[in-house]
Design a protein around this nucleic acid. Structure first.
Lengths: 188, 188
DNA sequence: CATTTCGCTCAACGAGTGTTGACTCAACGA
DNA sequence: TCGTTGAGTCAACACTCGTTGAGCGAAATG
């Protein structure tokens, strides 16, 4: 088979990556509590002790697994910001950020995940609020963020039948008016 | 003290109620996995074994604790339905349905809570869809439900700073246009 | 009063968890 | 070639969890 004799550094990098991938996958599927070190190790084809040796504790493994780098998304006007938000629905559907799913899956039951979620959502809200007019911009930005959160939770985590297989454009079309209303601009 | 000598039936009813209250409170606060039988028993001032004896298993205790009776809410027109939805924000803020919070807290990580949540949300969606026009009424009803879910999660469970202490009327005012847009009626 | 019922506690079991230390053996550097 | 490093394994510890069965003592019943 393709079991080349890899140099030590490379070998370590790869197994560490396999463990992180397995961790993300399990954390995203069943949440922090139900995802066991043993399960993650088995999914990565590795001994449970190795996971501890590499990451120190389940807690730190989780932190590394959900470490998220939210894109910068420069200065936009409110309408562009809405489109940017709606665009994330596509990304989320593409399964790309499994680390985000892992964080969201655990944010209601795992304190550290909750802290992490508040931080990420807070940054998102900050970014939105910057571009919105009015003195309640932060509140409206928070509501926009929570609207997207609710739809994502229902779609990706609860997997409601009503949203199964609905194309992203249709979701965007239906949600756009509500989000625009929250931008607080005059209707043109 | 007020330790009257109560008849056996009454005594049983009360301790069973205390256990259920403690269970709801703990399930709502920390979710299914982190809420332990021992913890619930201690909060109810009772031996852990008694909890098992009364409810059979942790699973059944959870089911009884989150058994929810969603109000009927007769036939309304779309605008009234939106107001009814927005009105639930007040109820939720009043801490009334701790059983709902318990269910929501665990719905992402506990399979049975997820099933229960899908059922409750499904019924909510059905009720909404009945009053909405158009052939994608169910999809729009689902989105309305998820908007409310997102706001409630952010407000009650994640306790985002941005929503702390915001009066219900303001939330309703900001969310109303978006929900009305999802009713699919012509703008009057 | 005698007997049964039953609310309730006590002590323990067995399974699963995160975590640890000693160990194996192949890759590395001199 | 030889000693050292480090990736990876094995077996076990300490703990917590849900769950159980035996038992106590007061209320119910006759």
């Amino acid at each position: 088979m393709a079991d080349k004799v890899l140099p030590r550094a490379e070998r370590r990098r790869r197994t560490e990556g396999r463990i992180l991938d397995a961790a993300r996958s399990l954390f995203a599927d069943v949440g922090y509590e139900r995802a066991t070190i043993r399960g993650i190790a088995k999914a990565a084809g590795v001994d449970p002790a190795l996971v501890m040796q590499y990451f120190g504790s389940k807690q730190e493994l989780f932190q590394q697994a959900v470490r998220v780098t939210l894109p910068s998304g420069g200065d936009l006007d409110p309408d562009e910001v809405v489109e940017h938000l709606l665009g994330t629905l596509t990304v989320k559907m593409g399964e790309l950020p499994q680390s985000s799913l892992a964080m969201m899956r655990s944010m209601l039951t795992h304190p550290e995940a909750a802290t992490s979620a508040r931080l990420v959502l807070g940054k998102q809200i900050d970014r939105l609020a910057e571009t919105l007019p009015g003195d309640d911009a932060r509140l409206r930005a928070a509501l926009m963020t929570l609207v997207m959160l609710g739809v994502t939770v229902g779609h990706q985590l609860l997997e409601l039948d009503e949203l199964r297989g609905v194309p992203q454009e249709e979701l965007a079309r239906l949600l756009r008016p509500g989000l625009r209303a929250l931008t607080g601009q005059e209707v043109s």
